[in-house]
């Protein structure tokens, strides 16, 4: 939500259209593993098995009228030697710039727990895509902040959490 607020404040006046009230989607959380600090060679979870795969719901609550999903996960490397804790955030909204066609927006990002509540999204990774129809989305993948860990032999490797939102259905 804060992305949308910030972007709205920065780029112009917006009016709220008719928001969805409840959205179902599949959430996958994965970890891209990089053997070295050379992240150019990092695979983006190609062929790997999702560490978390759940069907979840985005709904408004008393604090936030935008249908949202927020959950903290700790995901581990396959051998259990390192873990990363992330806050997965998914917001569905519908809004418009003044005089323009209303659009749906899908906001997917990963925060670190330490900064998840900050007004300025330091360490947050993700983005917002806007479409005239929410049904046009088939999925959205956002990477979290890369974290480096050190092996026993002293070499560094990088862990990159990823979030994939797919199979979106507006229920209400």
């Amino acid at each position: 939500m804060r992305f949308l607020i910030i972007i709205a404040l920065l780029f112009g006046t917006q009016a709220w259209g008719e928001r969805p009230k409840k959205v179902q989607f599949e959430l996958q959380l994965d970890m891209a593993y990089c053997p070295t600090k050379d992240k150019k060679s990092c695979p983006f979870s190609a062929g790997s098995k999702a560490l978390v795969r759940q069907t979840v719901f985005a709904e408004p609550d008393a604090d936030d009228p935008v249908p949202h999903y927020r959950q903290t996960f700790t995901i581990k490397r396959g051998d259990g030697t390192a873990s990363v804790t992330v806050v997965a955030v998914v917001n569905f909204d519908r809004w418009e710039y003044q005089g323009m066609t209303p659009v749906y927006s899908l906001d997917v990002h990963l925060d670190t727990p330490e900064t998840a509540q900050l007004a300025i999204p330091v360490d947050s990774r993700g983005s917002v895509i806007t479409m005239t129809e929410l049904t046009g989305f088939d999925g959205m993948l956002a990477q979290g902040k890369v974290q480096f860990h050190r092996k026993k032999d002293g070499s560094l490797y990088a862990l990159t959490p990823e979030i994939l939102v797919s199979k979106i259905k507006i229920l209400e």
Partner: peptide, 14 residues
């Protein structure tokens, strides 16, 4: 980031 779309019809922005 990466998004998967069924069509480019409705794409407005990022």
């Amino acid at each position: 980031f990466s998004t998967y779309l069924r069509s480019l019809d409705g794409l407005v922005g990022f």
